[in-house]
């Protein structure tokens, strides 16, 4: 019985795994997501992340959540952030606690963050943005933790994103327009 069962079980598992969609280069899910701050590039990240869940468990902002199978089997149980739901406040605790360095341990310091965090880049849809429509808003500017470095404001608090934006998503989260006028283009897409 034993050898037959051995082989049979192996075959069954192989069939099962083959049925599961493995990560494609663009990801399977429709949700626009970001990886935690200081994460390696997507391919390296997936190879390094051991799905331990410590980053989410340490995140004081509760923005880190975990994939099921909706982004492919390779992303199963890996951390991601949806900025519109809960953006990253760049506390950098996840990098401290990540055991494998899938999220690099970075100091919570301006220069280090600007160099090391590459979650994505914000862009403003001026056709929706209130400040470009005759109101004065400026919420995204005020929400940005790297104010005047990653984003500046002009007349009527109109936002201008600079090339230093790291993509934490606080601007997108705070935008009071529905749908949001400023959003992050993820770096992994």
């Amino acid at each position: 019985m034993e050898r037959r069962t051995f082989v049979a079980t192996l075959a069954a598992m192989a069939a099962g795994l083959a049925g599961m969609p493995v990560r494609s280069s663009t990801g399977e899910t429709e949700i626009r997501y970001l990886r935690p701050p200081g994460a390696l590039d997507e391919e390296d990240f997936l190879g390094r992340c051991i799905h331990c869940g410590q980053c989410g468990e340490t995140c004081p902002n509760r923005c880190i959540r975990y994939f099921g199978l909706e982004n492919g089997a390779a992303s199963l149980d890996t951390p991601y952030i949806v900025p519109r739901d809960k953006a990253c406040i760049l506390c950098m605790k996840c990098g401290e606690v990540c055991p494998t360095g899938a999220i690099k341990p970075l100091q919570r310091e301006l220069e280090t963050i600007l160099d090391g965090v590459k979650m994505g880049h914000a862009w403003v849809d001026e056709s929706i943005c209130l400040s470009y429509q005759g109101k004065t808003c400026g919420v995204c500017y005020r929400a940005c933790p790297l104010q005047d470095v990653a984003i500046t404001v002009g007349r009527l608090e109109q936002p201008h994103v600079t090339d230093k934006c790291v993509g934490c998503g606080l601007c997108e989260r705070s935008c009071i327009q529905m749908p949001q006028a400023i959003r992050i283009a993820p770096s992994h897409a």
């Binding site: 005759g134 109101k135 004065t136 808003c137 919420v139």
Partner: peptide
């Protein structure tokens, strides 16, 4: 929504008012 007919703000409003 800001009132564009109001002579004080002419349809401008800040985030406190908007929210």
């Amino acid at each position: 929504r800001p009132d564009k007919d109001h002579p004080t703000n002419y349809g401008l409003q800040c985030i406190k008012g908007l929210t």
